[in-house]
């Protein structure tokens, strides 16, 4: 089974993020980058599928030169090949634009299965995978916890709300967006890093960005809106006031 894993490089989890001077994106200087967490689980799922069923795992990542470090890490963890889609203007591409360049690079690989994280840690739009499936014309399933190959197709476990799960059977080729926490991640090893040096990383140029349908207007840190109102009176009066507020201001009861 040939599995492609689309991964994204995002700022480290505890990075001190500052808004860039133009207010359109974050200041990228002085940031450390790492693999997007759900993508790490997608990679893990791919590696486990390969270990069980054989085949090949190819990681694909779009972005500037710096993303090659994340690709190398994926190779060190056990991916067989990497494709780097070179693009310095990721910030000016919307979801469709990003999905388009990923899909373009994947098409010629004719994979059996494409995995990616269900969303990114930075933007959290959760659409890239789904749009990619549409562009490639293959079925998809989202928020996947577990994947099992059944020979001709797949059995997947989707996470629903409130502790419910849905088990779905689907044909191949397909695209799945993977939820974090379904597997245990592996640690990178010295042997993996040394082997990664000999593995192939293909660099392709991203097609020029078209005018995005969605543009980021302003990026800002959450503004503090600490409005505390002290309710006074007898317990009965306070309770009545709370009920009124919950009913008419917050509208939850």
């Amino acid at each position: 089974m040939k599995i492609l894993v689309a991964i994204k490089q995002v700022p480290e989890r505890d990075a001190q993020v500052h808004v860039a001077s133009d207010g359109k994106w974050i200041d990228e200087s002085d940031l450390n980058y790492t693999i997007n967490e759900p993508d790490a689980y997608a990679l893990e799922e791919a590696l486990q599928l390969k270990e069980k069923n054989g085949g090949e795992v190819v990681v694909v990542c779009a972005g500037p030169e710096r993303v090659t470090s994340t690709l190398r890490e994926a190779l060190a963890k056990g991916a067989d090949r990497a494709i780097h889609i070179e693009a310095d203007d990721m910030g000016s591409r919307d979801t469709l634009g990003v999905a388009q360049i990923l899909a373009d690079a994947m098409k010629s690989e004719s994979p059996d299965l494409i995995l990616t994280g269900l969303q990114s840690d930075d933007l959290g739009l959760g659409q890239t995978g789904v749009v990619m499936a549409e562009l490639l014309g293959i079925p998809h399933a989202t928020i996947i916890m577990h994947v099992e190959a059944t020979g001709s197709g797949l059995k997947v476990k989707r996470e629903l709300e409130d502790g419910w799960f849905q088990h779905v059977e689907m044909p191949l080729p397909a695209l799945l967006t993977i939820q974090s926490g379904g597997n245990k991640l592996r640690y990178a090893t010295l042997m993996g890093i040394k082997k990664a040096k000999t593995k192939e990383t293909k660099t392709v140029q991203a097609a020029a960005a078209t005018a995005p349908a969605i543009a980021l207007d302003r990026v800002y840190l959450p503004e503090k809106q600490k409005k505390t109102e002290m309710l006074t009176g007898t317990p009965d009066q306070v309770a009545a006031k709370i009920v009124e507020k919950l009913k008419f201001e917050v509208r939850v009861i």
Partner: peptide, 30 residues
């Protein structure tokens, strides 16, 4: 460990914490 043969939930957690957070307790540098 260097060849990935050692599989231990806590050990892996420790290594990932050291990789990601740079401290053994897995807390944010903040």
């Amino acid at each position: 460990t260097n060849t990935g043969v050692w599989e231990d939930t806590y050990g892996t957690k420790l290594f990932l914490a050291l990789e990601k957070n740079g401290n053994a307790l897995g807390l944010s540098a903040m």
